[in-house]
């Protein structure tokens, strides 16, 4: 019995006598898929072993001078001409 409903595409029958047209994709239990799966596991295992047994590396931290990001003020993002900073010196 096919329990893999998630990958079953069904078509609505046009006539009452017409059976449901079921299209099924290959199940993961097919020999070819299993073979590929085992090969992938072996490959992954080999890579993990390589990483575990590698010689220790000296990590060099390169100092990068972080420049202060000059973010324009929202007022300056528009086409405005008035310099808002000049408006901050005032009297009443």
């Amino acid at each position: 019995m096919n329990t893999n409903n998630a990958i079953t595409v069904t078509a609505r029958p046009r006539f009452a006598t017409e059976g449901v047209n079921q299209l099924t994709r290959p199940l993961p239990t097919s020999p070819m898929v299993l073979r590929l799966f085992v090969q992938s596991l072996a490959e992954l295992s080999r890579k993990v072993d390589q990483l575990a047994t590698r010689p220790p590396e000296r990590i060099v931290v390169k100092e990068v001078q972080i420049k202060e990001v000059q973010k324009p003020s929202p007022a300056a993002e528009t086409n405005n001409k008035v310099n808002r900073k000049e408006l901050r010196s005032f009297f009443d």
Partner: peptide, 20 residues
């Protein structure tokens, strides 16, 4: 504050007895 781009009170400079 947003219109004048002011974040804190120190951003404002008051002009006392300004000739005008």
């Amino acid at each position: 504050s947003c219109t004048l781009d002011i974040k804190r009170a120190e951003d404002i400079q008051r002009l006392d007895s300004e000739p005008a």
